[in-house]
Simulated scan of single mutants.
Amino acid sequence: MAERKGRKGAETRVRLLDATQELLESGGYFGAGLNQVIAAGNAPRGSLYFHFPGGKDQLVAESVRRAGTAIGTALADLADSAPTAEAMVESVLTFLGERLESSGWRKGCPVATVALEMAADNDALQEACAEVYASWEAALRARLDGRPGADDLAVTILAMVEGALVLARARRSREPLERVGRQAKALLART
C-alpha cells in the first residue's frame, strides 16, 4: 500500500511539472497560475504544496530545469550524431522548428519567457534560467572545441537560435530559423 501511495505521489508530481511546463511555454510565468496548474495537472491543491513547499517559484524553477534538461539532452544527441558543427546547428534548428510548428507555435524555448519575465526580479528563477542556458552553451561548445573562439561561438549560436525562435513564434513561420541556419553555417565556415 505504501508503495502505491509513493508511486501515486510521484505521478502527481510529474503531472504538476508537465502542466507547469506546458503553461509556461504557451503563456509564460503569469500564464501558469497555480489554479491553471492544478486543473491541467488534475491534482488536488494540497498536492501542489506537498510536492512544492516553496510554492510557485519552486514549481517553476524545477519545471524550467526539467525542460532545460530535456532540450539539453536532445542538443547533446544532435551534436554527437552530426558529422560537423554546421550539420549540428542545422539539426538543432530543424528539431526546434519542428517542435515549435507542431505545437501550433506555442512551444518555442521553455526558458526564454520565464527569463524575460522574471530573471530581473526573482533570484531563484534567474538562477534556474542561467543554469539551463549554461548547460546548452556547454553542449554547443563541446561540439565546437578546437575552433578558435569556441566559447564566443557557442554563446553567439545560442543567442542566434533563441532570437530565431522568438521571431519564428511571432511570425508563425520557420523562415527565421532557416535564415539563422544559413548565417550560422557561414559563421562556422569562417572559423
Rank of each mutant, 00 (worst) to 15 (best):
E178Y: 09
G104L: 03
L153V: 03
E131S: 09
R147G: 04
G181I: 12
E117L: 14
A2F: 04
E162V: 01
A40E: 15
L165E: 04
L75G: 00
A82Y: 13
R172K: 14
G163W: 06
M160S: 08
T84R: 14
A164Q: 06
V92H: 15
L24K: 09
L34R: 01
R147Q: 13
R190N: 06
A39N: 00
L177V: 05
V155K: 11
P83G: 04
G6W: 10
A130E: 15
A115H: 06
A67M: 02
Q126V: 01
R179K: 12
C109I: 02
T156A: 15
R66S: 10
A186H: 11
Q58D: 03
V161M: 12
E175H: 11
A32P: 04
E127Q: 13
G6H: 07
A159C: 10
K107N: 14
G72E: 14
G6V: 00
Y133D: 11
V180Q: 12
P176D: 13
N42H: 10
M160V: 01
V37P: 10
G31N: 07
A70S: 09
I38K: 00
D18G: 04
A87L: 08
A74R: 15
R99P: 11
R99W: 14
P83T: 05
S47V: 07
G33P: 03
A119C: 07
A130I: 06
R13W: 07
A74L: 11
T69E: 06
T191E: 12
T94C: 05
L93F: 12
G72P: 05
A112H: 14
L177F: 07
A19Q: 06
A159W: 03
A76S: 08
G27V: 08
L116C: 08
A184E: 05
K8T: 03
V180L: 04
G163Q: 07
L188Q: 04
G72I: 03
A74I: 07
F52H: 01
E62L: 12
R13P: 01
Q21M: 06
T84S: 14
M118D: 01
A115W: 00
G6A: 13
E127K: 15
A159N: 15
L116E: 14
R179E: 10
G54E: 01
E86S: 14
T20V: 06
E98M: 08
S26T: 14
V166G: 11
P148D: 10
R4L: 14
D145W: 08
A150E: 02
Q58P: 02
R7K: 07
